[in-house]
């Protein structure tokens, strides 16, 4: 499979190559980005990954539907239990679960492929013969990771919402503050949650991009990003290390439940977005420092 895939990918890179040289690129051309996204979406493993992301909310919703009665009061703070009352809780429960492992894994795979994958296949040097400087290439690579993060989170949210509404219906939503908000307000807040989660995953993508410039083994980059994620979650769970928590990328990832207070509590969310931005800037710059100064031999 890998040999065949290499052939396919090299072929695609070749297409992109000629495409870029045939027409002189405009000041801001989306051609490179579109080609990158086409590559990401076209890879069979990424398509399978999207299926896995989509499967979890379906499994969750069906499981809750089958065991629905008499779970109330058991752990009512949990979004999943509330799903029986309102299908819009299904995407929230799915995001809560997938933000811990599946979505970080998805971005870890994409970011591993971004630079290390190309280097491993020997396509990176061809890519660099395109009249595109390395900084712009890195920007495009990161933009495609951000879009990949958005796509992943959107899949989970939309599939969760559709399945949840189909099985449980939608209606006014009970907030953590005990009062209800209207159904459209609830939909809006679920959409904000999706954007917030995408920001966190995109920030992790910057870490992945940096690691990807350090190695020529995409698997090494993927595993490193997963280790960073898992270690962050573990450290976040240790109260004695509270001084460290503001430095962890996952620190406020679960703060999106603050959107379901009335009125929403923004402070933690803004802090979370600030952390995401800080991670994205620092690691993109680190990736830039590494990528623009290293010798590309493969």
């Amino acid at each position: 499979m890998s040999v065949a895939e290499k052939g396919v990918e090299q072929g695609e890179v070749g297409t992109r190559h000629t495409g870029s040289t045939a027409t002189r690129p405009r000041a801001v051309s989306t051609r490179l980005l579109r080609s990158e996204l086409g590559l990401i979406m076209g890879r069979r493993r990424n398509q399978m990954g999207m299926l896995v992301l989509a499967a979890l909310p379906v499994v969750l919703a069906v499981a809750v539907k089958l065991t629905a009665p008499n779970r109330e009061g058991h752990d009512a703070g949990d979004f999943l239990v509330q799903a029986t009352a309102n299908g819009l809780f299904v995407p929230l429960a799915a995001l809560t679960l997938e933000m811990t492992l599946f979505l970080p894994m998805a971005i870890a795979m994409l970011s591993g492929d971004a630079i290390a994958g190309e280097a491993n296949l020997g396509t990176l040097r061809y890519l660099l013969t395109v009249p595109v400087n390395r900084t712009r290439l890195l920007a495009v690579k990161y933009a495609s990771l951000v879009i990949g993060a958005l796509i992943g989170v959107t899949i989970v949210t939309v599939v969760g919402a559709v399945v949840g509404i189909a099985l449980f219906g939608a209606g006014p939503m009970l907030t953590l503050s005990g009062v209800q908000i209207g159904v459209w307000s609830a939909v809006g807040r679920v959409a904000l949650v999706a954007l917030y989660c995408a920001a966190g995953i995109a920030a992790l993508g910057a870490v992945g991009l940096f690691v990807s410039t350090l190695t020529e083994q995409p698997m090494a980059a993927t595993v490193t990003v997963m280790i960073v994620t898992i270690v962050s979650w573990i450290l976040l769970g240790v109260n004695q290390l509270a001084f460290l928590h503001p430095w962890l990328i996952v620190d406020h990832w679960m703060s999106f439940s603050d959107l379901f207070r009335e009125p929403p509590l923004w402070s933690n969310l803004l802090q979370g977005l600030g952390q995401d931005l800080a991670y994205a800037v620092v690691f993109w710059l680190a990736a830039w420092a590494r990528f623009t100064s290293k010798d590309i031999t493969s």
Binding site: E72, A76, G77, D78, L174, G178, D258
Partner: peptide, 28 residues
Amino acid sequence: AVVGDRGESDLIRNGTTLWTWSSATKTA
């Protein structure tokens, strides 16, 4: 409102009416 990670307790006084709400037990 006492804000917890995924819960909230509220104490609302409006005139002579006092509501307490706990999201953990979903009880007002």
